[in-house]
Amino acid sequence: MNWKEAEERAAKFLRKKGFKILERNYRTKYGEIDIIARYRKYLVFVEVKSGLQEFFPRTRVDHKKIEHIQLAANDYLMKNPCSCLGYRIDVVEVTEKGIEHFEGISL
């Protein structure tokens, strides 16, 4: 499965969980955020990882990647103020065996 199919599956999965997708592939000078969604009163910045199950694609989200997502999230919030209670960073792992959702990833 390619990255585009993985992101589409992740977005569909999140919608079923009650997330409202606001943006896809949001690009900044700090990097790209795969999915920006609203869940209840929070903004959620989602990194989608895919690949072979035995390699756990989620392990490719390291401290440096999280820092870049945080910088890109701050860029988004400056350009798109919202009445949110806060934000979090999630990782959605898409493999041939299914989808796993990891909420509130931090440094």
Rank of each mutant, 00 (worst) to 15 (best):
K17P: 01
T59R: 13
Y26V: 08
S106R: 11
F102A: 06
V92H: 05
A11T: 07
V61Y: 08
A37R: 12
L43M: 12
E93H: 09
E8H: 13
V44E: 10
P81W: 00
G98D: 04
Q70P: 00
V46W: 03
K49S: 02
Y26W: 13
S106D: 13
I21R: 05
M1S: 11
Y30T: 04
E7G: 06
N74P: 00
Y30A: 12
R15D: 02
A37Y: 04
P57V: 05
A37N: 11
F13A: 07
K16T: 01
K4I: 15
N80D: 00
W3K: 14
H63I: 03
K41C: 09
C82D: 01
Q53E: 14
I105P: 01
V94H: 10
K65S: 02
K49T: 03
D75G: 04
L107H: 13
K4C: 01
Y30D: 07
D75W: 01
Y76R: 03
A11S: 12
R58T: 08
G51H: 05
K79R: 15
V48K: 00
L52R: 15
Y42P: 00
F45A: 13
V61G: 10
D90T: 07
Y39K: 15
H63F: 04
A73W: 00
E7K: 15
M1R: 13
E5I: 12
K17W: 00
R60A: 05
C82N: 00
C82V: 02
T95R: 03
E103W: 06
C84S: 07
E23T: 00
P57K: 09
R60Q: 05
L43C: 02
L52Y: 04
K4T: 10
Y76T: 06
Y42H: 09
G86P: 01
I69W: 02
C84M: 01
P81L: 05
I66L: 09
K65A: 13
G31E: 15
E67T: 05
M1L: 09
T95K: 06
E100G: 05
L85T: 03
T95S: 11
Y39L: 08
E47A: 10
K65I: 12
S83W: 09
I33Q: 01
A72D: 09
F45S: 08
L71V: 00
R9S: 06
E5Y: 08
E5L: 10
C82I: 00
T59G: 02
G98L: 07
L14C: 05
R88D: 01
H63M: 02
K12N: 09
H101S: 07
G86L: 03
V61W: 04
I35Y: 02
D90P: 09
G51V: 04
I66K: 00
I21P: 05
